[in-house]
Design a protein around this nucleic acid. Structure first.
Lengths: 223, 223
DNA sequence: GTTGGTTTCAAACGAACGTTTGAATAGTGG
DNA sequence: CCACTATTCAAACGTTCGTTTGAAACCAAC
């Protein structure tokens, strides 16, 4: 085995978490897959909970840095002018989709991450909230600036819906197959499809319930 | 206690499954909440797995009947003409959102269901696939008829994305709160918001990657 | 070649899980 | 009132979980 035990455990855990879930994956399954001793997990990570955190942190920190980097590059290019919504969507969701296409573990991880936004386990939620705090701040500001006509609460909902679509795009392939035989092997096509859908949803006309209290009797398009 | 043990167990399980997940919810937690004896679950349902199935079946069958009923009503009204996409979206997603607003347990259940489309546990996936087979068939046909210009594969992806948005709309309120303080108490507003977003995404311009091989050099709008 | 620190290993730990058991209790038709 | 079925109950079952232990193996430095 060329890689060290710690890395083999992370890889095995990541992959098993995807196929069985966090709770249903046992340390014995992980260490067997990683060809390591059962006690190795507690030796290298301290506990199963700490292992879960390490699995997420290994790639999530990098992903969010990429997102912020892409956004910063667009903003430098725009010299203070508001970005196009498409650029912000690209920086947040495009980067994620591209990572999901990466066969160096990124693909596996993104399927795991997509499931975990709605994870009921408390410590996972808390951990994700911390990891996301900065990136959410930056993107909220950028979107608010780019879409000044959209009420902020309305936008937050749309952002939330977009996260749902992303989540299914990268992790819901089992659910997808319920719909019929379908080809999900082309990451470029998936990227184009999701971007189209997201921007269509983001720029949809404001619903009347929302547009009405805002004293704009007939909103046409959101942005 | 007015209701019978069997119902109390179903209610307790449904609610605990939402807050802790399927695996992390133990029979001891369920029977404690239901004020029943531990052995009552195996007496009334046979096993924990069978209980999970019963929890889903109790409401999911009814939900999908409602969906098919709504679609059938629209089709009768249209007398053979293709439906408007908005009507089909309403029949599938609108019915779900309305059930999610029902405080008689429907709300709890829909939060559980939203999480379960991407559930890694095999028997849950298999069970859901069976429960959904008919309703998916009906709605695929209706959509294909209503959107003859959209390649079927492209539509299936969009339907999948829409499921993701629905899932987050009804069950991802914890993830939603990561975005900031936000009011999710008004079901009518949520309904209007989601419908807007879904139809915007469904009718977005076809992505070039998809539009190109279809020999239509410049697709404008999907439908 | 011995030392000292790091990593691996087989074995065992107590706790908690889903399930089973057999007796006690409730409820119902004859 | 009795016989019988359905339900509840406390207790225990065997299994598996995450974790701990202490010794063995490894490995670089001197």
């Amino acid at each position: 085995m060329e890689t060290d035990t710690r890395t083999r455990i992370l890889d095995a855990a990541e992959s098993l978490f995807v196929s069985h879930g966090l709770d249903a994956t046992t340390l014995r399954m992980i260490t067997a897959e990683a060809q390591a001793n059962l006690a190795a997990v507690n030796y290298h990570f301290g506990s199963k909970e700490a292992l879960v955190e390490a699995v997420f942190r290994r790639r999530l920190t990098w992903l969010n840095e990429q997102r912020i980097g892409a956004l910063t590059a667009f903003e430098a290019e725009a010299r203070g002018a508001p970005l196009k919504p498409r650029q912000i969507v690209e920086a947040f969701f495009g980067v994620a989709i591209r990572m999901a296409a990466d066969h160096n573990g990124g693909q596996t991880f993104m399927r795991l991450l997509g499931r975990s936004y709605t994870e009921p386990t408390e410590f996972v939620r808390k951990f994700l909230a911390e990891e996301y705090a900065e990136v959410i701040d930056r993107f909220k500001s950028a979107f608010f600036k780019a879409l000044p006509d959209v009420p902020q609460e309305e936008f937050l909902w749309r952002f939330h819906f977009m996260m749902g679509a992303l989540s299914y795009a990268i992790s819901g392939t089992d659910a997808l197959r319920m719909l019929g035989p379908i080809d999900d092997s082309d990451p470029e096509a998936l990227y184009a499809r999701l971007m189209s859908f997201l921007i269509g949803g983001l720029r949809a006309p404001l619903p009347e319930v929302v547009a009405k209290p805002a004293k704009k009797p007939r909103a046409r398009r959101a942005a």
